[in-house]
Design a binder for these strands. Structure first.
Ligand code: ZN
Ligand code: ZN
Ligand code: ZN
Ligand code: ZN
Lengths: 161, 161
DNA sequence: GCCTCAGCGTTATGAAATAACATAACCAGG
DNA sequence: CCTGGTTATGTTATTTCATAACGCTGAGGC
């Protein structure tokens, strides 16, 4: 991952079996409550994100889309990603051109990530934007969204303390 | 720019004439001090960034590269951008796939941007990452770089208070 | 001088995202 | 029902963004 250190694969195993089904069901419930539709392509892309061991590229999703090995057409996946982002079920990581399922409980939140340059994991955390937000307001800005991506080494990949 | 409000062009006019020459000369000096080479393509791309009224896309730079109208080849510009980023003369804005010249005085700094979704300006500011940094360290992460991009409306484009 | 290597020019290709338009499913009102 | 507005999908093609690979050149150390 750009830094030469060779740790095993991602420390963030994807969901399987029941856990996966539960996560999808939770999303479905949330959609019902807000009268949004978790249609087949949307559900499929959400599954793929949840199953994955780390951030997925759009074209990884496209390739993995069909259970029979048939890829999806790009718009299918990009539309599903738009939906999942809008509902807060997934986040785009700008600096990786990649997508992850949301790992936070609370519904609407501002996402931020700690990205390991060795093993590729991207851990979501709940940032405190107070200082930046205050600075922006002071300058007269009306902030709508904030992207924060910190890159470095995760505990597992960090050369021992 | 995604939000329907129609303000005039970017509020960040590019440099011209003397100011431009000064800025380039300053970069050249800094390179000399660190034994880095501000070669013609690097200088040219820096000029283009400084002249611009706002964030420039890589292919905008490619198109504008030749004084005679001849575009550059993509690698020429991407290499120059890599250099300028490395030296701190330019920054990439991930959420726009765009580049801006560095507007801050201090040499090595962590860049952050306030991006107006109406007029397209991207104002650089010096963020205080203390809280996020502390949180990351507490989690065992060794943070190397941080990307922060806040999107919203600038004072000029904000519906009057 | 000679070597080394960073930088460059060039061709080609790969990766990421969207435009545009036709079709199909959903749903509320009549 | 059915009909019209709305939302979502299927499909083709294209655009936009970025890098691989290779050979050449010229600056600077010895
Ligand atoms: Zn989240
Ligand atoms: Zn790691
Ligand atoms: Zn800067
Ligand atoms: Zn503005």
């Amino acid at each position: 991952m750009g830094v030469d250190c060779h740790h095993p694969e991602s420390a963030q195993p994807g969901l399987e079996g029941l856990a996966l089904a539960d996560a999808v069901a939770a999303a479905a419930n949330k959609c019902e409550r807000t009268r949004e539709r978790l249609t087949p392509p949307r559900r499929r892309v959400l599954e793929l994100l949840l199953e994955a061991d780390g951030p997925m590229k759009a074209y990884d999703l496209i390739a993995a889309y069909g259970q029979d090995g048939e890829p999806a057409k790009p718009p299918t996946v990009y539309r599903a990603l738009d939906f999942l982002e809008r509902l807060g079920f997934a986040h785009r990581i700008e600096s990786l051109n990649s997508y992850v399922p949301c790992r936070m409980e609370g519904s609407s939140h501002r996402a931020a990530f700690l990205i390991c340059e060795c093993c590729g994991t991207a851990e979501e955390f709940e940032p405190d934007f107070a200082p930046q937000f205050a600075a922006a307001e002071a300058a007269g800005y009306a902030v709508r969204t904030v992207t924060l991506e910190a890159r470095g080494l995760c505990p597992a990949c960090k050369p021992e303390a």
